[in-house]
Nucleic acid binder design. Structure first.
Lengths: 121, 121, 121, 121
DNA sequence: GTGGTCTAGACCACC
DNA sequence: GTGGTCTAGACCACA
């Protein structure tokens, strides 16, 4: 898998997993792949995957059963969604608006771009 | 000043300066603040400011007169605008669209947010 | 049952059994629950219970009759008590004292806590 | 430095630093030794020290200035003390009391031990 | 098999 | 110089 150069891989893996949870690819109380499997799957060192999992554990998106594996925390989907939504609307969106204004991008042009992107993807 | 945790400070300073240029706060052939002033203003090491300026020099947004200071390159505003626009439309926008989709944010709700933001700010 | 995060489960189970012996809940030459029962009771893998029992066997707190089960060793209560007492006085107490000092907890306040705890429980 | 066998080194280092803060060995907004220095000082790998610092950062006992080092968070002493005190009184003490009861240790004998320990250390 | 810790060492970006 | 990330590989405890 290809990772973005300028963001730590372990955070990108965390994002990946959050996405899968939002996508219902990983459901609540379901086991996520083992650190080793994930590592070889993504072509990264297990330690790096471990860091992702550690991080996700601290934000309570996953929990672990010792000797068994990591599992999606019940309620994680809702929580992740709301956190992401909050941060998007309160932090990212204002920056986007600011940029749009600065760059003199026409609102309706932008909205059309978004609409098309949503249809397409 | 507060900087984003996960982005080099020198790039954030560069962004800041570009913004000012787009804002007409710094006009062409006008002098930008000295490295020293900028540093103490932002609470960062002058070396860090220096890196920003070097970076801006390589992308030809500013130029320097030795012993005098740094100045905005003529035409910088147009160039910066087009660079930013490109990167916004090609790189940021797709990510935004992806996120919006993932978070089940209604397109029209989003567009309204943007419209309002533009009116307000 | 909930286990402490940072101590092996099998040792915590061993502690549990020692407690029962000190409590006279399990008496000498009496059978302790089967590995299977203990496992489902505590919600842990039978292998983990097995390890506890093995450990207790090596320190001669229990012994096994093959095909029958595990039994409390005669004299175990005395032995366990003295082991625990030693380790409490020599290892735990100094740490407690150190902590109390570090946290500026008044000696008499602490002693009162202990006295009350003993009366209550 | 010697570490306890059965507790992760990185947590022991974290404890060490908390102690120093409680001791006023490290004061608020004061810099703690660099990861590398700490590593060679304690005879552990810098990565291990890093984990300690990471942990202490998440619980907001220290903060970092990029490229400069780690510093004690203002208010850390008070916070650490109160957290430690709470956990001692609510979690550890009941266990101690339980053990004391189980082992038939005389309250006054115990209290004397504590008093002496406090005088001595 | 699982996760967890640790080491060694490299390389990077940043100050 | 600082912290941060990543790899490789070892070893351990645990289920």
């Amino acid at each position: 898998m290809n990772f973005d150069e300028h963001k730590p891989i372990y955070l990108q893996i965390a994002d990946l997993i959050c996405e899968k949870i939002l996508n219902d690819a990983y459901r609540e109380d379901e086991r996520v792949p083992s650190i080793r499997d994930m590592g070889s799957l993504l072509g990264v060192n297990p330690n790096t995957v471990m860091r992702s999992f550690e991080y996700l554990k601290t934000i309570e998106v996953i929990y672990d059963k010792r000797g068994v594996g990591f599992f999606v925390t019940p309620g994680a989907k809702t929580v992740v969604k709301s956190i992401f939504k909050q941060s998007f609307l309160n932090e990212e969106l204002p920056l986007i608006v600011k940029k749009v204004k600065l760059l003199d991008i026409e609102t309706e042009v932008l909205c059309n771009h978004i609409r098309e992107g949503l249809k397409a993807g």
